[in-house]
Design a protein around this nucleic acid. Structure first.
Length: 714
DNA sequence: GAGTTTGAAACT
DNA sequence: CAGTTTCAAACTC
């Protein structure tokens, strides 16, 4: 996409057309066609319908029709309201404004912010509209019905004015191309968002176009607007802080929606068939955007899935590995349809009664700090996606190698710990043997599986199989590592406390590995063995089954408190991650009946997974992690080798788990449902007097009343 | 990279 | 439910 992107806005439209590749041209034709359609629509109809459609399309809880219809007379205040709630709405509304309110303060405001000077936009002032800044707040807080209506008067005339850049397909293409050209450097981040939005629009465009509705036009326009806004944000240095703030707010809204609805990477392949190349080109045009693509949460919002009731397979946000270290995970999933197996039981809870802002607040802090943003982004990042190639291109490159190489490559990068890459040969990736399947994600290209059925095209099979497995063992897809809610609060610096450490829910059954290798799920999960375990000769460095576990082999004989205190250090790290993951848990509305994804999350130890553990001396984990070396940990050199903490070792805070998932819950009743009670059921009544056992009891007690919280902070 | 080991998952 | 088999990851060479 490079050449066409480099076109200067100053070049003539003719020149632009010449270098435009076919998809762009096609798109322009599409736009041009859409414009003509738009002219026949009343302003009210455009707004209300577009809003409605987009909301529906995005599976956002539809707002009452009456409200939507009122949008026809809406004010910018409403726009702002929706802008904070739903990017799509913002999109459509603002698009309409672009179309209808060219002379309005809003339009001028937006236009003035944009550095783009459309070739023919001679009479569209690029100067700052006085209203734009000084009165911007009022613009967005008070109805401007009059100006809207006024615009309707002007509309016809304006629309018929070919010199109006906003209604020239050529100019639109100019805008888009310019935005592409800007997709570099610091703008990459925004471009990723833009790409996200752009691509996210495609399914809607497709569907709408199939219906012959004007929704597609709205979205096409939306692309233009996004590109404008994007640059406005990027070039905010020339804008007053106020408008920067406002625009960034809008933009943040976009980004949020991106986080929620993005499936761009996943469906783009399909989308591109009809949507031209701009969206994909955006991603490809700038490799830097890949680092932000990870923030895009793939969901099944593709063209086909958008019309389909999403399968109830669970939101696999649990697959997110979220250690700060992983923030730099760069790659975006490019599987044909994304990896998250999303279902109604698990999708982000856009409850109709939830206001947009509330909704967003539940998802993201309103004004997160940078780190928070990172956390959030990361929290919403499907790890599988993140650890794959950067977009299709990267994936394809990676996939040119053998599966093992692929795996190693990612692993060696230190960023692939939580990636699910199976190598199944016989299970068809439809059994828990398969890491991907067990983790609730679709297999992707990097997988080396053979005869894989764990793919979107076999969605039904996957669902059926999953149901079957769950019927056999409701906890089959449940988090395997449960951590107590108190580990953080109690661990602190008081090593005498005995936090309810994370524990493998079912316990291991190791015979030979001594729970010192990753064969052991407990060890792999970075947790000590517990009474649940039936391991033999347990030497789990994170805590031995008999309660004497101590971190570090050389201090194995140390007693419980040491064990627990040291584990508490681990817990702190886990807890930290768990807290960061709370957000995603909280947006996970998986009902108890669908336990598999409820709060499931992978917690990743801050070390690379596949790096073989040093045998003689334990490395001090990177200082950045503060995991071992920090926290005043006394014996870092005795630390166990870094276990991999990925796979389906998602941990979940026990207080956030549904009761039935909490092994210790007396009301669980799971035991009877499990095919193998000894593995599924928690310790009952076997609580002893050792700290270890006390902690177990503590977990149980605290687990009783809890349920996945819907509030971020708990 | 091939072969071995291991333990979870699945099966009987 | 226990024992066995299957399976794929982890591990070793």
């Amino acid at each position: 996409m490079g050449e066409g992107v480099e076109i200067s806005a100053k070049e003539s439209n003719q020149e632009e057309r010449e270098v435009m590749d076919t998809p762009e041209r096609s798109k322009n034709n599409q736009i041009a066609t859409s414009i003509s359609k738009f002219e026949n629509l009343s302003f009210e109809a455009v707004i209300s319908v577009s809003v409605f459609e987009i909301i529906r399309e995005r599976k956002v809880a539809s707002r009452p029709a009456s409200v939507l219809l009122h949008l026809g007379e809406c004010s910018l205040a409403i726009v702002e309201l929706f802008a904070n709630a739903n990017l799509s709405v913002t999109f459509s509304l603002m698009i309409v404004f672009l179309l209808r309110l060219q002379d309005s303060p809003v339009f001028n405001f937006l236009n003035s912010l944009s550095p783009i000077k459309p070739v023919k936009s001679i009479h569209i002032t690029q100067t700052i509209n006085p209203l734009s800044f000084a009165t911007l707040p009022s613009v967005f807080t008070s109805p401007h019905v009059s100006s809207l209506r006024e615009s309707r008067f002007l509309r016809r005339h304006q629309l018929s004015d070919p010199s109006k850049p906003e209604f020239s397909s050529d100019d639109r293409s100019t805008v888009i191309q310019i935005s592409l050209r800007h997709s570099c450097g610091l703008k990459a981040k925004h471009m990723a968002d833009y790409a996200c939005n752009t691509s996210a629009l495609v399914p809607f465009v497709q569907e709408a176009s199939q219906r012959g509705s004007y929704g597609s036009e709205v979205n096409i326009e939306g692309r233009v607007l996004v590109s404008k806004l994007e640059r406005e944000v990027n070039q905010s240095t020339c804008s007053p802080s106020l408008e920067k703030e406002h625009l960034s707010g809008l933009y943040r809204g976009m980004r949020r929606r991106c986080l929620v609805f993005e499936m761009a990477g996943g469906r783009r392949k399909h989308m591109d068939e009809n949507s031209g190349s701009d969206s994909s080109a955006l991603l490809q045009s700038d490799g830097n955007t890949s680092s932000n693509d990870q923030k895009l949460l793939p969901m099944r919002t593709g063209n086909d899935s958008s019309r389909r009731v999403l399968p109830g397979i669970g939101l696999h946000l649990n697959a997110l590995a979220t250690t700060p270290k992983d923030y730099k995970i760069v790659n975006h999933d490019s599987s044909a349809s994304g990896r998250l197996l999303i279902g109604p039981s698990s999708s982000v809870n856009f409850h109709p009664s939830t206001t947009g802002q509330e909704l967003l607040n539940n998802i993201l802090p309103v004004a997160p700090s940078d780190r928070e943003i990172d956390s959030i982004d990361n929290a919403l990042l499907p790890v599988e996606d993140a650890c794959q190639g950067s977009g299709y291109m990267a994936n394809e490159e990676i996939n040119q190698n053998s599966p093992k190489k692929k795996r190693r490559r990612v692993e060696q990068s230190g960023e692939g710990d939580s990636c699910k890459r199976c190598n199944c040969k016989k299970s068809k990736c439809l059994k828990l043997y398969c890491e991907c399947f067990a983790a609730g994600v679709y297999c992707v290209e990097p997988c080396a599986c053979i005869d894989c059925f764990n793919k979107p095209i076999h969605e039904d099979t996957v669902l059926a199989t999953r149901k079957q497995i769950e019927s056999r063992n409701p906890l089959a897809f449940a988090p395997k590592v449960i951590r107590g809610p108190d580990s953080l609060s109690e661990t602190g610096d008081d090593s005498s406390k005995t936090p309810a450490s994370a524990r493998h829910k079912r316990g291991c059954n190791c015979k030979k590995s001594g729970c010192l290798k990753k064969y052991c799920e407990c060890y792999q999960g970075g947790v000590g063995c517990s009474i649940n375990c039936r391991c033999e000769g347990c030497k789990n460095a994170f805590g031995r089954k008999d309660g004497s576990g101590v971190i570090g082999m050389e201090v194995e004989v140390e007693e419980d408190e040491t064990d627990m205190s040291e584990k508490s250090v681990l817990d702190q790290s886990f807890q930290k991650t768990a807290i960061e993951n709370d957000l995603e848990q909280n947006i996970d509305s998986a009902p108890p009946a669908t336990p598999l994804r409820a709060g499931r999350q992978s917690v990743q130890l801050p070390f690379s997974s596949k790096k073989k553990p040093p045998r003689s001396s334990f490395p001090s984990i990177g200082s950045s992690s503060g995991f071992y070396a920090g926290q005043g940990f006394g014996k870092p050199r005795f630390l166990p080798p870094p276990p991999k903490f990925d796979k389906h070792f998602e941990t979940v805070r026990e207080d956030e788990m549904p009761d039935f998932l909490q092994g210790g819950s007396p009301v669980s009743g799971i035991k009877s449902l499990s095919p193998n009670g000894k593995r599924v059921s928690p310790p009952h009544g076997a609580v002893g007097t050792s700290p270890r056992l006390r902690s177990s009891r503590k977990l149980i007690l605290q687990s009783i009343p809890s349920f996945p919280s819907l509030t971020p902070n708990q």
